[in-house]
Amino acid sequence: CHSECLGNCSQPDDPTKCVACRNFYLDGRCVETCPPPYYHFQDWRCVNFSFCQDLHHKCKNSRRQGCHQYVIHNNKCIPECPSGYTMNSSNLLCTPCLGPCPKVCHLLEGEKTIDSVTSAQELRGCTVINGSLIINIRGGNNLAAELEANLGLIEEISGYLKIRRSYALVSLSFFRKLRLIRGETLEIGNYSFYALDNQNLRQLWDWSKHNLTITQGKLFFHYNPKLCLSEIHKMEEVSGTKGRQERNDIALKTNGDQASCENELLKFSYIRTSFDKILLRWEPYWPPDFRDLLGFMLFYKEAPYQNVTEFDGQDACGSNSWTVVDIDPPLRSNDPKSQNHPGWLMRGLKPWTQYAIFVKTLVTFSDERRTYGAKSDIIYVQTDATNPSVPLDPISVSNSSSQIILKWKPPSDPNGNITHYLVFWERQAEDSELFELDYCLKGLKLPSRTWSPPFESEDSQKHNQSEYEDSAGECCSCPKTDSQILKELEESSFRKTFEDYLHNVVFVPRKT
């Protein structure tokens, strides 16, 4: 048989008469490798580009789960590009990614509803959504962080984005990388972005840091009482949809009607710091009717980097990364020049730590249904340095008659930039024990000054392991946590139920 035959053949030295091919099969003959313009397919066939392209389009058009959109890589027609490569849609070739590779997620039936953290986790790592997304989240724990972890990498949506009755959302900033909504599939009414009845939605994105392009379709905003109209108009300008909307697409009466839409800028007039305090004062603000001013709200939190936005980490279910302080308005003076500047002394802060701070007014709604208010920009203030805590785990070892090696770990709280350490030492008198000992005694162990690591005695271990207080009263049991108490109650309830079950099964009433 021919060298490319495997198993047997019907005619000697003829690659077209093989029972099976050793390498690849091409047009009725066995070959060692697939010549151009053919590609290896499933490690035994040679196919042309049209064959591989037909497989790709067949799966793409069917949208069946589990099928493969075949691509070409290293002269092979394979189910998908290997790690580190992405497909070129024009020629199906796998090309190296520039940075992290995109991950295209194809949605069944063309859309997916995100109504819980669990459903959001199914899209973790996706960068391109081939379909439409509907966000409908009523509640949950730590929602802002969970949504950002699972949806934060999405850069492109081919269909539309719909935010509907998501009472738990305060902001859409968890879509931190969303840059493009194509609108290839539109919501009824030709809408590519749809926001309806979101009672706590206050911000779409921080438009000073976020760009969003909507290729096709219109915007729809109705019944978002805490979303200011200025935020919607800003989205029109940034996304390129200005002029597409009709009169009733953006409701003037049901958007922002319960919001404090600040239209003035508060400026800080005085800032002073110490290692654990920050004193702030800002310019006074009074609405047209000074009785509408209820006070100020001061927001602050630790910020290692200057990239904080107002609604980071917030949701309507209680999660809030900001510390909020309510401040009463100052006494009002008739003389504008003698107006008191409101302020606040922030206490209990960490030394040498940068804080993000902003302040906003708290006002009631005027009778004319106009909203007044003022808010400052987010500023960054760093507390002063102070003395560091003591170095940890000092170790001293003498390696000769004239040297001592000293080692330690950095302090747990540096409280500033540590530039150097101060080492103090003092000579001590020799131990009298060394002169009084009889060095001729056998088995004498000389006193040693070398360091030995501390260890816990058996008594201390027994005390720590004991669940009861000892007789001397030195140790006591740790208080039980809520989960331990709940577990004990469940076990007790189970024992009672099981005992009742045994009584009912074992003891049967005697027939009379």
Rank of each mutant, 00 (worst) to 15 (best):
T383F: 00
T383V: 03
R281Y: 14
D384P: 10
S338E: 13
H233V: 08
S321L: 12
A120T: 12
S401T: 09
E368P: 02
S333L: 05
F365V: 13
A195K: 00
F290M: 02
G140S: 13
K242V: 11
N399S: 11
E262L: 02
D257I: 05
N200G: 02
L266N: 01
I154N: 01
D115H: 14
G318L: 14
E236S: 10
W286H: 04
A145N: 12
V397G: 14
D335H: 11
L252P: 08
N320C: 09
R291G: 05
L252I: 10
K242A: 05
C126I: 02
L331Q: 14
K360R: 08
C317P: 09
E231H: 12
S338W: 05
V238L: 12
Q258V: 12
Q199G: 13
L180W: 14
Q121S: 07
I271R: 01
G110Y: 12
A195M: 12
M235P: 00
S338M: 11
K162G: 13
L349T: 02
W205G: 05
S116N: 14
S401F: 07
Q245G: 15
R291E: 03
C126A: 01
L212I: 07
S319N: 14
L229I: 01
L161M: 07
D292C: 09
R179E: 09
I395L: 11
P304N: 12
S132L: 00
P411A: 08
A385F: 05
K209H: 15
V381L: 15
S274L: 08
G125R: 12
V390S: 03
S400L: 06
L133T: 01
E368S: 12
N248P: 09
Y380A: 02
D393K: 15
R370D: 07
C317I: 14
P225E: 04
Q403Y: 15
E237F: 08
R179C: 14
Y191H: 11
S389Q: 04
E283V: 13
T364D: 15
K242E: 15
S192A: 03
L406S: 03
W322R: 01
N399I: 10
V104H: 12
V325A: 14
L266D: 00
R369L: 12
A251D: 03
P388H: 14
